[in-house]
């Protein structure tokens, strides 16, 4: 599953055709969802499947196909200096994070066997984090309204 996740990520950034990149991203997100399952978080995994695979991936594919034309495919190759800088930055970040994780003494602690169920998650959402939920609902509504207002087609003679 880790291979699927990382491989999908690489495909999504390096595929020649942007549609294949979107499919690679969907594969990577699916890999993350299965990792959630393996980490004893089935509720989060199902949420990830529903939101990312169901909504975001389809939205991205839709946009890619809507916007694609002839000039689309010829993607400008980045300058080689930028490419080298990107590789160096990525390797530095990966090494730093990996050694930071390995240097901790987390392995001395045992993983809790009885992890949270969706009942615990639901209780936490509806009690302690209820204000966060409300604010998040407002943010979602605002972003949907913003997206609609942005992508509205201005017709000729429309008073706007």
């Amino acid at each position: 599953m880790a291979v699927v996740t990382v491989g999908g990520a690489i495909v999504s950034l390096e595929a020649k055709e942007l549609v294949y990149g979107a499919i690679g991203l969907a594969g990577s997100l699916f890999g993350v969802a299965t990792l959630f399952f393996l980490l004893n978080a089935p509720y989060v995994a199902v949420f990830q499947l529903a939101v990312y695979i169901g909504a975001v991936a389809v939205l991205i594919l839709f946009t890619v196909m809507l916007v694609r034309q002839e000039g689309w495919a010829k993607e400008v190759r980045p300058k080689s200096t930028m490419s080298v800088a990107g590789v160096i930055a990525a390797v530095a970040v990966i090494l730093t994070l990996t050694f930071a994780v390995l240097a901790t003494d987390l392995s001395r602690y045992t993983v809790v066997a009885n992890t949270a169920t969706y009942v615990d998650v639901g209780r936490l959402i509806s009690t302690g984090y209820a204000p966060v939920l409300e604010v998040l609902a407002l943010v979602l509504a605002a972003s949907i309204v913003g997206a609609l207002a942005l992508s509205r087609v201005d017709r000729e003679g429309d008073p706007s």
Binding site: L13, L18, V76, M82, S83, G86, I94
Partner: peptide, 18 residues
């Protein structure tokens, strides 16, 4: 960490909005 590093690489090198 690998996933984050790949994300950083993409953010630095690519110029396509998607």
């Amino acid at each position: 960490a690998l996933l984050f590093g790949i994300g950083v690489y993409g953010l630095v090198t690519k110029r396509n909005a998607m």
